[in-house]
Structure formats: C-alpha cells, structure tokens
Amino acid sequence: MKKTVLTVDDSRTIREMVGFTLKSAGYDVIEAHDGQHALTVISGTKVDLVIADVNMPNMDGLTLIRRLRANPSYRTLPILMLTTEADEKKKAEGRSAGATGWIVKPFNPQKLISVVQKVCG
C-alpha cells in the first residue's frame, strides 16, 4: 500500500516540489498550507509522514509538531522539519518539540526521497 505524506508549507512552490518528488517516488501526497490547516487535514486521513516547514503563518512548524505529539494518535508519527536553518540550535528546538528529523532547504529530489525513506520506508 502506498504511504501517505502530508506536506505542510506556506510556499506553494515548495509544496508542489515536495509533492511532485514524492509522488514520483511512489508516495501519496496531501498538502496543507499552514499548521492550522495541517491539523484539519490530518484529522480525516491516515498519514504516514508529515513534512512541515518551520516558518508558517497562523501556526508555525514547531507548534504543529508539539500539537501533533500531544495527541496520542500521533505520538510516534514521523515528522520531518523542513528548514533553511541547518544550525544545531534549530535542530535541537525541533527535536525537543518532537520532530523525527529535518530536511534542509534547498534540497534535491534524491536527498528528499532518501530522508523520507529513512523515516517511513
């Protein structure tokens, strides 16, 4: 069965690129444009992985991760942070919020796929 990835980013370009890359690699991809929207979208769907941007309006990526982790259903759901900021401080923040890992922008398609495979097969 295809795995479903929820990509959360306020940038349409990034959403499309992530979506395209992952679909080409055989994933189903659904999209949300911010954290708030992601919570709505995920509530009706079975999702195997969330890829969330950090900087987003309404609800940022870190808050989204915390909110998801607070819900027992998503305690072990893989969540990747999409960030341009590759410094350790950001990663630590992400990790303490409950992120599974991170993807540094700009990413190339292979890297994205290999990271995704690393956390959800």
Partner: peptide, 17 residues
C-alpha cells in the same frame, strides 16, 4: 527513540540501500 517518530526498521532498510 520511537517517541520521536523514528523507527529502526526504516533505518535498517536505509542501510540496506
């Protein structure tokens, strides 16, 4: 480790690649 959403199975699979 599992609570961060990581899963050793996938790590092993990644190694296998």
């Amino acid at each position: 480790l599992l609570l961060s959403g990581n899963d050793p199975v996938f790590l092993m699979r990644a190694l296998s690649r």
